[in-house]
Design a protein around this nucleic acid. Structure first.
Length: 723
DNA sequence: GATGACGGTCTTTTT
DNA sequence: GACCGTCATC
């Protein structure tokens, strides 16, 4: 066993695998065998150190990664049961803990988990309550403020007390109402799952001690993308054993907008003083052409824990840069390339087209359909976000948690059953009056107090009967699938769907898909099955989308979602200023650097062939504009790039012309000086701390009142100088 | 109360 | 160029 397990590892990997006591930080470059190390470390602990599988917890970035981990382990350790390893995303693990122990901090085990759509709906209600006009302020702004506060563990009351500007006060009020509404609905949002788990650990030392005793080893993957709460969660679970191993790569940190905090890596070394640091620097994945290009690119980042990666792989084929006329041209160039490479022995699943924004997928889908190229689209219109799926799930949620008004109101008139706005308002008022949920108000309906038309009462009575019937079914000992069938038949949902003129077949098929997913829970106890099923539904990651299962197809995927994946042939289209780097991420140095890391992640997914492209014209919103080639292309040495001009109409563009640097032309003098008070549209007010000349431009360092220190480019950031 | 037409907004990335 | 919310009409 031992020889099998350890002979195929290099020196650093071996160190990371066998270092079996105390804190361990593994800095793992792309393709350096990170997953291999995690799998082997777990296998080593189990087979050599007699650690039981259920004493090991592995936190992964997606649920799929956690399943694959268990699969690989089962292959490695025949006699042990790898499925007993505690593994999942931070959110799914926290959710399970709260379902079991949440009652000690006042969280009932049947809480609902609200996704983004539910959250938006709650924010809208909160805005209404505090009289904030949602036409003036986009609800998602509040949502990101709330999420930001939660992932930094800022309490809503405290938040309210410390906010000074008018908008901050507004946001603080929305936050406060939002929390109340979540509470009323007996619901938790994604951030709550982690936040409350941390609270649970603090408030219930016994629960924590028990967990610490049971979890002897903790492993955290993709550590560079954890936020403050997630790190705290991990720290709390690490008992006196200090057996925590975190694996990550600062150069692949691409989720700061989701409040991931790179400082966690630095803090880890402070918090765990005696930690061992292992660096995996040999890349086994890519050709040296690809790796060298990636290293040249990432070396342009200044905020970096330098960590050069090297490979002994052969040079490989050159990286190609294609120039297209527009996005359709770009898509057909890539389609032709795929066809050609297929004749050379590649198969469809070897290809991935990786782009910055989901909207880019359309041109490729059209080209692929036209050319009969099979493809799978990862995470775009997610399965679980489809209307018909959310409707059915709403019914299940009402059964799970009768306080879930949000779900109740979603389907109270779906399919249409004559319960209109007035009737709903009357019912809601009645519920409010009695401090009750809408569902309870309906089930205990006293129609004499409702001041509405007879037909309204009749419709309510009808729905009451439907609900009672469904609830009755849920109380019987039947399976989840039979409950689902019952809901479909009693509510008349099938007929409702089939009545629709467009896409009704597809919608019905989706429900069939949902039914078969529910079937996976049929061997669990019915009352536990509902919680487990709804948890899975709420906490799925993009790769878990059932539609992504098909094989023998080209993968269409966002750059963010490619993290951790690899493909023999990778296409990165849309290398244009405003797209990569994205226009919304161009006004600070930090943001540009994160965009560069995103490109770096994309490049390093490629095993043997890499194709970059940009198109001279692109249509956004329906208007076509001339583009500028991405500045990141210039970060790749010319000798590694083969410029290809496929389009016969663009012969004149054949030479390798560097795009004119936007900043060179302007030759700016600093119109902003140190000490100036400035205002930024996004970061608010602040004071200029420093100005640094940067190739015809100035980097302005501003200390913002709310958002802290930011490095901005004078020509890009629209800074307004205040008196 | 249901349905359809219109007009305004929007797109970054996601657990 | 799609989607959502709002409004007018049946």
């Amino acid at each position: 066993m031992k020889s099998d397990l350890l002979t195929k590892l290099n020196k650093q990997q071996l160190l990371a695998v066998t270092n079996d006591s105390g804190p361990l930080l593994v800095i793992a470059g792309p393709g350096s065998g990170k997953t291999r190390v995690i799998v082997h470390r777990v296998a080593f602990l189990i087979s050599e150190k007699q650690v039981k599988p259920d004493e090991i917890m592995v936190v992964t970035f997606t649920n799929k990664a956690s399943r694959e981990l268990k699969d690989r382990l089962n292959g490695l350790l025949g006699q042990y049961d790898a499925s007993r390893i505690i593994s999942g995303t931070f959110h799914s693990i926290a959710s399970k803990m709260l379902r079991i122990n949440g009652d000690s901090i006042g969280i009932a085990n049947n809480f609902s988990i609200y996704d983004r759509e539910d959250q938006i709906s709650i924010v809208r209600q909160a805005c209404e309550l505090v009289e904030v006009d949602t036409k003036r302020y986009n609800p998602s702004i509040f949502l990101s403020i709330i999420s930001n506060a939660k992932s930094k563990m800022i309490d809503p009351i405290l938040n309210q007390a410390t906010s000074d500007s008018l908008f901050d006060k507004l946001a603080a009020n929305v936050y406060l109402e939002y929390e109340k509404l979540l509470h009323d609905n007996q619901a938790l949002d994604f951030d709550d799952l982690l936040l409350r788990a941390c609270t649970l650990f603090e408030k219930s030392p016994l629960v924590l001690a028990d967990l610490q005793n049971r979890i002897k080893y903790l492993l955290v993957d993709e550590f560079q993308d954890t936020n403050f709460v997630q790190y705290k969660f991990a720290k709390q679970l690490t008992g006196d054993s200090q057996n925590i191993c975190v694996v990550g790569d600062p150069d692949q940190s691409i989720y700061s907008w989701r409040n991931a905090d790179l400082r966690n890596i630095l803090n880890f070394q402070k918090d765990f003083k005696n930690c061992t640091v292992v660096k995996l620097v040999e890349n086994y994945r890519s050709t040296s052409n690809i790796l060298n290009a990636s290293q040249a690119l990432i070396s342009q980042n200044s905020n970096r824990i330098t960590n050069d990666i090297e490979t002994y792989n052969p040079e490989g084929t050159p990286i190609e840069l294609h120039v297209a006329e527009n996005e359709y041209d770009e898509a057909s160039i890539i389609t032709e390339k795929i066809k050609k490479l297929r004749l050379e022995g590649f198969s469809y699943e070897n290809f991935a087209v990786t782009y910055r924004v989901n909207a880019q997928s359309r041109a490729f889908e059209e080209a692929f359909v036209r050319n009969g190229v099979p493809y799978k689209l990862i995470g775009a219109l997610k399965f679980y976000q489809r209307r018909e799926i959310k409707d059915i799930i709403a019914y299940l949620r009402i059964i799970q948690n009768s306080n879930d008004d949000n779900s109740m109101l979603r389907v109270i008139n779906v399919p249409p059953r004559g319960i209109g706005e007035r009737t709903v308002t009357a019912l809601k008022n009645l519920a409010n009056l009695n401090g009750d949920s809408v569902c309870h108000a309906l089930l205990n309906l006293d129609e004499t107090v409702l001041n509405i038309h007879k037909t309204g009462i009749k419709s309510l009575k009808n729905f009451q009967g439907i609900l009672n019937e469904v609830i009755e079914e849920s109380l019987s000992d039947h399976s989840l699938t039979s409950l689902l069938d019952k809901i479909l038949s009693i509510t008349g949902y099938r007929e409702h769907i089939l009545r629709e003129l467009e896409g009704s077949e597809e919608r019905w098929e989706n429900i069939g898909e949902l039914r078969s997913i529910a079937g996976q829970f049929d061997d669990i106890q019915p009352n536990e099955a509902l919680n487990a099923f709804l948890d899975q539904v709420a906490l799925v990651t993009a790769e878990d989308d059932p539609s992504s299962d098909s094989n023998e197809s080209v993968t269409l995927i966002t750059l963010h979602q490619t993290k951790g994946l690899e493909f023999p042939v990778v296409f990165i289209p849309g290398l244009e200023e405003g797209l990569l780097p994205h226009s919304r991420s161009m006004d600070s140095f930090d943001e540009i650097e994160e965009e560069r890391r995103l490109f770096y992640v994309g490049i390093t997914r490629a095993i043997s062939n890499l194709y970059l492209s940009w198109s001279k014209y692109r249509t956004i919103f329906g208007t076509t504009t001339r583009t500028i080639r991405s500045q990141f292309v210039d970060n790749i040495p010319e000798n590694l790039l083969k410029i290809v001009n496929t389009n016969k109409f663009q012969l004149e563009e054949r030479s390798f012309t560097k795009t004119t640097n936007l900043f060179d032309q302007q030759n700016l003098l600093p119109t902003i000086n140190e000490g100036d008070k400035v205002e930024h549209f996004k970061f608010g007010k602040g004071v200029v701390v420093q100005t640094i000349p940067r190739s015809g431009d100035f980097e302005i360092v501003v200390a913002f009142k709310v958002n802290g220190i930011k490095h901005l480019l004078s020509s890009v950031a629209k800074l307004k100088v205040l008196e």
